[in-house]
């Protein structure tokens, strides 16, 4: 019998794949890894990562974690760079719409599972929500020590001196720590963990978060987790305490302060504006009547048109 016969259906649908793509045995294997990861916060659990129909480095770890925990009544939100409609977020959302037929949303508050790349939503997450991070390099010590055999030993012995030396050298050279994203954290006072390449602006949100945080690295075959209400401290020194980025201006569309902003280049004469990286947060604020200094201009309408929004805001 030809393999071609039982794969493609006449209507071209992917009907023969299991719910959320992965077979149940594989999901069980991933769930076991997740449970272990939750039991040992910040510890990288090796798992038998599968090939997925999207490339390694494009979120296969996050997709496998989401596929393993997704139920038919879940509501899924997918963001990349804080936005629901960057191309890769659209692609992953469409993947789960197709293979699991689950409800999706762009609203942070409505989602039960949020898969993310590079950001944590601005809105405070709640109990019962799960944040799934896509992780490219799970090992926080990797760029200090390329060998897995060594870094696993270092974690086992809680030998993190090398990391502190690196941060110290930054201070000695630049006067401050020159790591702006993927800024290492210590979880529950034990494991040093890579928060994935989120800007360090988001690090404080990980601390004591009500939601469960799961991290999936597909190519590197690792899963790790931060259970709800867990201590997450960014590494620093007493005389050089951890600091997040600050922006000079509020969001040009919704006037939000204390949020992470994207820089949008408007022309080739140095014109630029700063807008919320979290597009859902920005839209909600504008719906609630907040107006930034450029909210009335044409660019605002164009940016909003790009969003998968049903709101009439930004006019």
């Amino acid at each position: 019998m030809s393999a071609l016969d039982n794969t493609a259906r006449a209507d071209g649908s992917e009907g023969s794949y299991n719910f959320a793509y992965l077979d149940e045995q594989t999901k069980r294997m991933i769930r076991r890894a997740i449970l272990k990861a939750i039991a040992v916060p910040g510890y990288q659990v090796p798992f038998a990562s599968r090939e997925m129909p999207m490339p390694y480095g494009w979120g296969t770890g996050g997709v496998q974690v989401t596929a393993a925990i997704l139920g038919s009544d879940d509501v899924l939100k997918v963001i990349d760079q804080g936005s629901d409609d960057t191309t890769n977020a659209v692609s992953i959302r469409a993947f789960f719409e197709k293979t699991a037929n689950v409800a999706t949303t762009t609203h942070t508050a409505e989602a039960t599972i949020i898969q993310t790349r590079h950001r944590i939503p601005e809105r405070q997450l709640e109990e019962g929500q799960i944040l799934v991070y896509q992780v490219p390099i799970p090992e926080p010590l990797r760029f200090l020590e390329p060998r897995e055999t060594e870094t696993r030993k270092m974690h086992a012995l809680e030998e993190y001196g090398l990391m502190h030396v690196k941060l110290y050298e930054d201070i000695a050279r630049h006067g401050h720590i020159a790591t702006t994203y993927a800024y290492p954290v210590k979880v529950d006072g034990r494991y040093v963990m890579d928060p994935s390449p989120t800007p360090k602006f988001d690090n404080p949100k990980m601390h004591d978060m009500a939601a469960l945080q799961l991290f999936g690295a597909g190519r590197e075959k690792r899963i790790y987790a931060v259970p709800p209400y867990t201590r997450v401290e960014s590494l620093d020194f007493e005389d050089h305490p951890f600091q997040v980025q600050r922006f000079d201006k509020p969001c040009a569309l919704c006037a939000a302060e204390d949020v992470y902003l994207d820089e949008v280049i408007l022309d080739d004469r140095g014109g630029r504006m700063f807008v919320c990286s979290d597009t859902d947060h920005c839209e909600e604020r504008r719906t609630a009547g907040h107006r930034g200094e450029m909210a009335g201009e044409e660019i605002a309408a164009r940016l909003s048109a790009g969003h998968a929004s049903d709101g009439e805001d930004g006019q």
């Binding site: 494009w58 804080g82 702006t180 390449p197 360090k200 980025q245 994207d262 820089e263």
Partner: peptide, 29 residues
């Protein structure tokens, strides 16, 4: 090569959140 090509080519994905953080740092430095 499936792993390698995925990770090399993932540099095509948007990285502007991290790049923004680096911009900020370079300007400051």
């Amino acid at each position: 090569n499936v792993q390698a090509t995925g990770f090399v080519e993932h540099l095509k994905l948007p990285h502007y959140v991290d790049f923004q953080a680096e911009l900020d740092l370079v300007r400051r430095m």
